[in-house]
Design a binder for these strands. Structure first.
Lengths: 190, 190
DNA sequence: ACCTGAACACCGTTCAAGT
DNA sequence: ACCTGAACACCGTTCAAGT
């Protein structure tokens, strides 16, 4: 196994742990045990917990965005793109009641190093931009500023639905909220 | 200073700390120092961190609800009640970028004792019920099930707007999202 | 290049001991 | 009744030492 493989293995394991229990709850000793090394060795790959989290968040953003851009390139209609976006959050909940990495890190913001805070902002910014682009197809007459506000609103509403579903440990809460969003026109109809 | 005073002082201080930095980041030693005792003494009032958090969450719910019910009793119109509800979340952000206690505990759910998880669910349930009651005045023809879904959606959307505003450290994000919610009719117009 | 044990100051918790 | 210091097993981090 190469260096890169091991590093990636640590990242993958850590991502799941943070999404499941949060940044503060992530233990280097648990993480090390999960990949079969000692906690001191994790520092060989990532000098600090902040470095690990920043890398984690950066990759998460890139992969999330690659998936979303893939949908657009495949020619998926704009309204189905929005639903696919929401679907990612739903799928995350189904796996051990996990949260969006950007969401849980946002909640823990004051405990994060500046570099990690910056990655959270990058995540939000890039996904809002993607939503803007997709939304623009459905609402061609809308002004850029209003478009951006609506993209943000859709994003926030979905994050909030996920947060409340996690808090109650019940995916139905997420589904109910999203159905109401569709009824009212915040999300396109099914 | 009586026992009750000291206990309340601990609770008040702990509440602010959890809203600012989260449950996992709350340190008994920091908390003890803030109220002028040693960390071991905090355990005299609250045997475990879970006991403290559960009491915290219970009081938070009660106080939040008392404020909201006060609005209704004063005869504040239903749409202004909803805006006042949202206003609490905005005000929380303005104080050191704090979060709703129910929201941040929801994010940290897997790290919470069962009694604390139950308090988070109580918080959500009681506030949703209050929103249902207020919303019913504005939409008298709406069926109970749909009413509840919409109350949940409003709650989730506001929590999400707060989460994203916290993540970016910018209240304008909260304001933008809420403006979009109003535009689309999820929240009543201003 | 990659890993380790031991040490450091932290954490929640317990408990015997103080007043 | 209320508080304490000391101990326990944890935490992230550092570092000299191993291969």
């Amino acid at each position: 196994m190469t260096n890169k493989d091991k590093k990636q293995e640590i990242l993958t394991m850590a991502r799941g742990m943070v999404q499941a229990r949060g940044y503060n709850a992530l233990s280097f000793r648990d993480l090390a045990a999960a990949v079969g090394i000692k906690s001191a060795s994790v520092h060989y790959y990532f000098p600090t917990k902040g470095d690990l989290a920043a890398t984690l968040a950066h990759e998460y953003t890139d992969e999330f965005l690659a998936y979303l851009n893939g949908l657009v390139e495949e020619g998926v209609p704009w309204d189905q793109c929005i639903h696919a976006f929401a679907g990612v959050f739903r799928k995350t909940l189904l796996r051990e009641n996990r949260m969006c990495l950007g969401g849980i890190l946002a909640a823990e913001r004051p405990d994060l190093d500046l570099e990690v805070q910056a990655e959270v902002e990058r995540f939000t910014e890039l996904l809002v931009q993607w939503l803007c682009g997709v939304l623009a197809k459905g609402k061609p007459k809308m002004k850029p500023k209003e478009l951006r506000r609506q993209a943000l609103a859709i994003f926030a509403a979905i994050e909030g639905a996920q947060l409340m579903a996690r808090g109650s440990g019940d995916v139905a809460v997420f589904d109910d909220a999203l159905e109401a969003y569709s009824d009212i026109g915040l999300l396109p109809p099914n």
